[in-house]
Design a protein around this nucleic acid. Structure first.
Length: 585
DNA sequence: ATCGTAGGCGCC
DNA sequence: AAAGGGCGCCTACGAT
């Protein structure tokens, strides 16, 4: 099927800050010479308005430049992001994407530098050509050589174009090529959004952050000795509950187990949820749990974190539009796991507010949509999905919720597993879809999300291959153990595949929502500053808050229209206008 | 010294 | 109510 009549044509672009733009379309290659990055980006924006193409670029090196100046582009094709969609996993270099679309093994990708003694010398051909005789991209080019001359810029752009065309062709192998291609477009725009979030940063109230850190971790240490002393004071609060002068390290779980043993508690591990139940009955455990909270802030979100990741009142980290598992966004620098107690420090600038929104019950709703289970879809038509499920199963809402979540996560024991039988009889289509994914995973077969993302499975390494791997375990490796291990690996792959169908589909929906918001809030000078799996935080001028909030809410319906395989499923967003992140419900 | 793994916890 | 899926980041520790 040819969609080129209705969709904009590809134009590939590479940007060299010193020189200008290298461009390639199906008809021609050309350059736009400029004397600065700003001029290059201005020229690009002008071309975008004139040609209205779908921009093709290799990946990060381009999106980073665009994001720094916030160039307002929307339609794009990010070869590295599309590669992750097609191929799965984290690896996403240009050389890798190139190799895969050309059917070359990624293991044969040439590296820069000396030839190893055992390497078979290959014909490297003409260094002026970006593609080697063996078909791989020349490493000297991928590592920056592409920008050394104007001619090379256009060559490099035409290769990006070729890679994109080949990626497009590869979608024809998927069950729904048109849908996968639309995922490729939204994933590409999400990558651009990620680059913008990395450049913009999350506004932080630094004085408040310092107060909070001091409360948990004590004053900023002035020396290593001082740091030790402060730590000792923190530890002493817990250790003082132990009558004897036991020498133990609270940061060593084995020591903690010993400590609890002495106090009369025999526990398999020291996980917080397990200790939580004993909190009331033991001042020691209570003190220890409080210690762990403080220790978390002191070590992960303390002064070092502030110094390393917060500058000019902005918390900045790397953003990736799709992690290696199911395609959720990831972020570093604590952007995705800031403790709730620290959320008050996320504060809008003066004259600005946050428009915050989260999707309600998104995972079961996408399960309804991607499975096409009529009974489940009908449960997903109202504001609450779990109550209708509970009514059908004749159980409480709490049990129904537990069962649905358990079905998506692959729970095997407890209450949720008990209720699973009810789900299977009442929602056979949805449960069957999950079951099939789990079976494929157990076999080691890749599975695909609704939008066409490959979920790559792994298999247990053959145990006689590398006998010495792993920590000093029994070299004999009893075969019963091995079988048990293989079964446990298979079960683990089953849960992984099962969950990836849901987590991945929810991530696809979320990204369509986010990029829709990104595009529509631009005229109001508002920006997305945080994406958290089902939650969006928009930094908006205060006087535009109402309009931005309306856009964010409406964009859910647009995302549903664009993405959802079933239009009857209802998607909900809770939207609020706040000054600090902690004001969210 | 440096590396990989395990246990743990933060968020969803 | 039970403890299942994902990620990043911390410390401790054993192997190299």
């Amino acid at each position: 099927m040819n969609t080129s009549a209705t969709s904009p044509g590809f134009v590939a672009v590479v940007i060299d800050p010193a020189f200008g733009l290298g461009l390639a379309s199906d008809e021609r290659c050309w350059t736009v010479e400029t004397d600065s990055t700003a001029a290059s980006l201005a020229a690009l924006a002008k071309l975008d308005a004139e040609l209205r193409p779908r921009w093709v670029w290799w990946g990060r090196e381009t999106t980073q430049l665009l994001a720094e100046e916030l160039v307002p582009l929307d339609r794009c094709w990010d070869v590295q992001a599309v590669h992750r969609l097609l191929y799965g996993g984290w690896r996403a270099s240009s050389a890798e994407a190139w190799a895969v679309v050309h059917g070359l093994s990624v293991d044969s990708i040439p590296q820069m530098g000396q030839l190893g003694l055992l390497d078979i010398p290959v014909d490297e051909g003409d260094p002026e050509q970006p593609v080697r005789p063996d078909g791989h991209l020349r490493p000297e080019w991928t590592s920056g050589g592409w920008r050394s001359t104007p001619h090379r810029l256009t060559q490099w752009a035409s290769l990006a174009l070729e890679a994109a065309r080949l990626q497009q062709e590869q979608f024809s192998d998927l069950p729904d090529p048109a849908r996968a291609e639309s995922t490729a477009r939204s994933e590409s725009a999400a990558e651009l959004l990620c680059a913008e979030m990395a450049a913009t940063g999350l506004p932080l109230d630094v004085p408040e952050a310092l107060r909070l850190i001091e409360g948990a971790a004590g004053p900023r240490p002035t020396s290593y000795a001082d740091e030790d002393a402060i730590r000792a004071v923190r530890d002493q609060v817990v250790l003082s509950h132990l009558g004897a002068q036991l020498s133990l390290n609270l940061r060593n779980p084995a020591d903690v187990k010993t400590m609890l043993n002495h106090a009369g508690f025999d526990l398999p591990d020291t996980k917080a949820w397990r200790l939580e139940e004993l909190r009331e009955s033991s001042p020691l455990i209570n003190a220890f749990l409080r210690w762990r909270k403080a220790e978390r802030i002191a070590t992960t979100y303390g002064y070092r974190w502030l110094d390393e990741h917060v500058h000019d009142g902005r918390l900045r980290g790397d953003w990736s539009s799709s992690d290696g598992a199911a395609g959720r966004m990831t972020a570093s620098a604590g952007l995705h796991n800031l403790p709730t107690v620290m959320r008050p420090i996320v504060r809008a600038d003066d004259g600005f507010v946050f428009v915050r929104a989260d999707l309600g019950q998104i995972e079961p709703r996408v399960l309804a949509a991607v499975s096409g289970d009529d009974a489940f879809i009908s449960a997903a038509q109202g504001d609450d999905l779990y109550q209708p499920v509970a009514d059908r199963l004749r159980v409480s809402r709490a049990i129904a919720k537990l069962a649905v979540l358990g079905a998506m996560y692959g729970a095997t024991t407890g209450e949720s597993a008990n209720a699973l039988a009810g789900l299977k009889t009442n929602f056979p289509v949805a449960m069957g879809m999950l079951e099939r994914a789990a079976e494929a995973g157990k076999r080691g077969d890749d599975v695909f999300t609704s939008g066409g993302r490959r979920i790559r499975m792994w298999s247990a390494p053959p145990s006689d291959e590398n006998p010495g791997s792993g920590p000093a375990t029994d070299p004999a490796g009893g075969s019963a153990d091995r079988i048990e291990q293989a079964q446990s690996d298979a079960a683990s792959r089953g849960r992984y595949a099962r969950n990836a169908m849901i987590q991945g589909a929810a991530a696809e929906f979320f990204k369509v929502w986010a990029i829709t918001v990104r595009r529509q809030i631009r005229p109001f000078n508002a920006r997305i500053v945080l994406c958290l799996h089902d939650e969006l935080l928009v930094h908006s001028p205060a006087d535009a808050a109402e309009e931005v909030a309306e856009i964010v809410g409406n964009a859910v319906n647009e995302a549903a229209h664009y993405w959802s395989p079933d239009k009857r499923v209802r998607y909900l967003a809770d939207v609020s206008v706040i000054h600090r992140w902690s004001e969210a419900k």
